[in-house]
Nucleic acid binder design. Structure first.
Lengths: 238, 238
DNA sequence: GTCTATAATCAGATAGAC
DNA sequence: GTCTATCTGATTATAGAC
């Protein structure tokens, strides 16, 4: 907990927020039978849903600031009931990170990721990266905010570096092929590109705008820039 | 602490890393007199240095995962001695965030921030933002990773939103003036631009490349894009 | 499957000797 | 100014009743 020792929890600066957001309904058979529970809209209890709930709370509060009490409250059950479903805090983290990494590495396995010129492939990967990021928003967000404190975090960071390395190779190839700007270090350009894409998790929320529109704007900015383009033949604004 | 209860601290997954990185030398008179201390390169004890050390450790481990023990160890003294210099964990956080915010808002007060066309002003601000980010790297990094758990964090987030709003207004003005691309929401473009700039804290380290070179690459990417530009008159690659 | 109660440990912060 | 020793409360995790 934070701040000086204060009697009541309400006196602390920390705000208890509840996870909102829609979630896929759990299989009916998995629901607890005696629906005597009176809490507000409570998430289902199947493992996959619990991971998603946990990822949401981790992102809102930060992994370290999140207590098992916070997680169980978000799931609508007590802490010890929560432990009945989950091995521990770090197991939840790992499951969420695996989902994010599976999504990202899945992109590299797609046929379009190895078809065409380097730039064509790169643009496909960027577009798909935006889509995976939107589809797995809480899990990817979690992945991008890791500090590397635990063994699980370091494992995920290592896999993330492998993904980034694939992007860097592709940027280098595209520059060599004359499809990307010259005069800059491809490793730097790859980091700028990844930074741009990854920064979406800080503000994009589903429903804010269609995912394919977002992907198009990111693609345009990354490769053509924000500046207005003058029609061919006209003079460039000084 | 993390993981199941284990006897020894060494058995935990957490790695104790020491703050490296160079620091401006403290005024000689501020150093403790009897240099009997035998630890490795230890930072000075003046308040400003302690804030910088704290910001570094906060960034490495995350604010919540950082204990006062971690901070005092990084400073080379015991926890209770550390408390002699500092009011508490949150006071350190606030001091670091103030430094970051002062740097950023200082940019908006510069004459060049309100001289010329919207695009000229925007480009100046972006360049200066990269420079401030590099000069105040640990403090700005901390600012960009806030979750809003405490009152201090929420205060800083609110000020950061004000800064972002200024950028958004400028992007809108530049688009209206025909200097930026059309067909996209200026609020989205502003977020993409800020996301690109802010993502630097995730990888840029002083000494990796000169700051002005970095600023130029960011400027070029943001406004012209990564794609190779064909000389005027030639056909655009399909 | 869920609960109350509690164990074991670690956090931020302080007291008081030197 | 620094230290050892300690307080208070929160944290992860478990025991065992229902």
């Amino acid at each position: 907990m934070r701040g000086p020792p204060v009697p009541g929890r309400a006196a602390q600066g920390r705000t208890l927020r509840r996870v909102t957001g829609t979630r896929p309904p759990a299989p009916e058979g998995e629901r607890p039978a005696g629906g005597a529970r009176e809490r507000r809209a409570r998430p289902a209890y199947d493992p996959s849903s619990l991971v998603e709930v946990a990822a949401q709370v981790f992102n809102e509060r930060g992994y370290d600031a999140t207590s098992m009490e916070d997680l169980s409250a978000a799931a609508g059950i007590t802490k010890s009931s929560f432990y009945h479903h989950v091995r521990g805090k770090e197991a939840l983290l790992r499951a969420a990170l695996e989902r994010a990494l599976d999504g990202l590495f899945g992109i590299l396995d797609e046929p379009a990721a190895s078809t065409g010129t380097p730039l064509t492939r790169l643009r496909h990967i960027v577009r798909r990266q935006v889509e995976v990021l939107a589809a797995e928003l809480p899990h990817v967000t979690l992945l991008l905010r890791l500090r590397g404190n635990t063994e699980t975090e370091r494992w995920a960071l290592e896999r993330r570096r492998e993904f980034d390395a694939a992007i860097t190779r592709l940027v280098r190839d595209a520059q060599t092929a004359g499809e990307l700007r010259t005069g800059s270090d491809p490793a730097v350009d790859a980091r700028l590109l990844s930074g741009l894409v990854n920064s979406l998790v800080e503000w994009y929320r589903p429903g804010r705008m269609p995912v394919d529109a977002l992907a198009s704007e990111v693609d345009r900015m990354a490769f053509e820039g924000l500046r207005a383009h003058v029609p061919a033949g006209e003079a460039r604004p000084s």
